[in-house]
């Protein structure tokens, strides 16, 4: 598609959608949202980019092959499940790491659940983009 309106709007929209997807990802920790939906949103940003600027532009904008993105996502999710081994708990059990302050007193706490969610995000983004690129290249 070669439309100036779409191309101009896309420049702004893609950035906005990507930021929104990260917001959705982090929000999913305590509220509705999460890695899956955020990954879909991010994938829609690249799909939009591909529509406006073409497949090659979208691929070079992504920089990493989407397949690798998906695989690294699965690896991250798997690793977050393995984290429990250092604490002597069962596989995939939740672990919280306190960064600043104490957990009870509004300190900053980071959990392996978050890493799992980021893994899901990357996997969904990579898998959907693999598919979109494959279908688009074929047609």
């Amino acid at each position: 598609m070669n439309s100036i309106i779409l191309q101009t709007a896309t420049r702004v929209l893609v950035a906005l959608i990507l930021v929104f997807s990260v917001y959705m990802l982090l929000r999913g920790h305590n509220y509705p949202g999460g890695g899956f939906i955020a990954g879909l949103i991010a994938a829609s940003a690249f799909a939009l980019f591909a529509m406006a600027w073409g497949m090659e532009a979208a691929q070079s904008a992504l920089r990493i092959p989407p397949g690798n993105l998906a695989v690294s996502g699965v690896a991250l999710a798997g690793l977050s499940g393995l984290m429990a081994i250092f604490y002597g708990d069962g596989p995939f059990s939740g672990q919280w790491l306190t960064l600043i302050g104490a957990k009870e007193e509004d300190g900053i706490v980071i959990s392996n659940v978050l890493f799992f969610d980021i893994g899901v995000y990357l996997t969904v983004l990579g898998a959907v983009l693999t598919l979109i690129f494959a279908l688009e290249e074929a047609s």
């Binding site: 695989v71 690896a75 798997g78 393995l82 081994i85 069962g90 596989p91």
Partner: peptide, 16 residues
């Protein structure tokens, strides 16, 4: 519990 998770953990890691 880790031993029982290994039968699928190992192939997935290998696949990656």
């Amino acid at each position: 519990s880790w031993l029982l998770a290994l039968p699928f953990f190992i192939p997935i890691t290998t696949a990656l």
